[in-house]
Amino acid sequence: MSTLPKVAVDVTPESRAFWDGLARGELVVTWCEVCDGHVWPPRDRCPACLGGPTTTRVLSGEGTLYSYTVVHRPDPAFAEAVPYVLGYVSLDGGPTIMANVAGVPFDRLEVGMRLRLRTPEGGTDGPVGGAVFEPVPGEGAGA
């Protein structure tokens, strides 16, 4: 897999903390203090209790692979990256979000494997593209 592209995303006031967090290598999700739970996608009110404004919380950045696909016919923006891995990652203490997975041979991918957010090289001041996860060293399939 070649390098994943950085797609210009439509950053909203609600989602800025999430994208800025990725640029630092952190997973920041919006949080409902009333329900004491995550709010996904980021928004300023809780879809469960309608309370707000929501706050944010920094998660550990680790999670479990919920499902994955190796994409051969890509979104045009990802044409140079095929084949690439798209997946859902169930974040520890947070939502299940879409992400890319890197650093694993395709035949070693496994639902349930433990992953952690990859820290972007050098870091940037703004959105860096998507969340890219890599295996947690020394940990196989989990839950």
Binding site: T12, R43, D75, A81, G87, A131
Partner: peptide, 27 residues
């Protein structure tokens, strides 16, 4: 959809979304 930016940033496609269902079903 509110989910679009979080999918577009990762190269999601419609077929990929169904593939994710299939993989999970297999698991």
């Amino acid at each position: 959809s509110p989910m679009l930016p979080f999918e577009a940033a990762h190269g999601s496609t419609l077929i990929a979304q169904y593939a994710l269902v299939a993989r999970r079903h297999m698991y």
